[in-house]
């Protein structure tokens, strides 16, 4: 059936077009073209009302923070805010590093490093999680990958982080080991600007 074939065509439209009434008329074409234009127009007009809810450029701007970690002794950590989220910088003890290295990769729930400074397919070995060349330094966004709570430092069965909301447990390299969270704690982009200063972001 031609477009709009079910509709009784007006007499002059038929006369104006051709002798075959099965053909779509000029009127049909105009109707559908106007309809399609209207749909696009409504969608275009609606988009600003949806997109206004997204974070604006001032929020999105990749704000960076610089942190002096010279005072952070082994076994200590500092937490700083970056993009409204807490980032923990932990100076790990020998014991924590050993525990992190001792874990077999096949025991991990999430096998990927989740390190913004490495490749997306890197495995979650302790070396890929810790700072490059400084295996005692661990920098992570301290936001549980389950539903966004803040895990507690130095707690849980694996000596790393424990989320009080739904019981997710992370090890000393911030990797998910037990509970409902699906991924390792993410590592934000950061760089050492001197031996004791880190810039996050």
């Amino acid at each position: 059936m031609p477009i709009g074939g079910g509709r009784p065509a007006r007499k002059e439209a038929i006369l104006a077009e051709s002798d075959t009434p099965a053909e779509p008329t000029r009127r049909d074409f105009l109707l559908h073209a106007a309809g399609a234009f209207g749909v696009v127009g409504v969608a275009a007009a609606a988009w600003p009302f949806v997109d206004q809810m997204n974070p604006d450029a001032s929020t999105r701007a990749l704000a960076s923070v610089e942190v002096d970690i010279s005072g952070v002794q082994p076994g200590q950590a500092v937490t700083v805010m970056w993009r409204g989220k807490p980032v923990v910088i932990r100076n790990r003890t020998e014991k924590e590093i050993e525990e992190g290295k001792a874990v077999k990769l096949e025991d991990l729930k999430d096998p990927l490093s989740r390190n913004a400074n490495g490749g997306p397919e890197d495995d979650a070995s302790d070396a890929n999680r810790a700072a490059a060349g400084k295996e005692n330094i661990l920098v992570m966004t301290k936001v549980c990958t389950h539903l966004g709570c803040i895990p507690l430092d130095e707690s849980g069965e694996f000596g790393g982080w424990f989320c009080p909301c739904h019981g997710s447990q992370y090890d000393t390299a911030g990797r998910i080991r037990k509970g409902p969270a699906p991924e390792n704690l993410p590592i934000p982009p950061y760089a050492f600007i001197s031996d004791t200063k880190i810039r996050i972001g």
Binding site: M53, P55, T59, R83, G84
Partner: peptide, 13 residues
């Protein structure tokens, strides 16, 4: 989620 909360975390927006 970003659209709903209007940022990277729950905030004034």
């Amino acid at each position: 989620q970003t659209l709903l909360i209007g940022g990277f975390s729950v905030d004034n927006a």
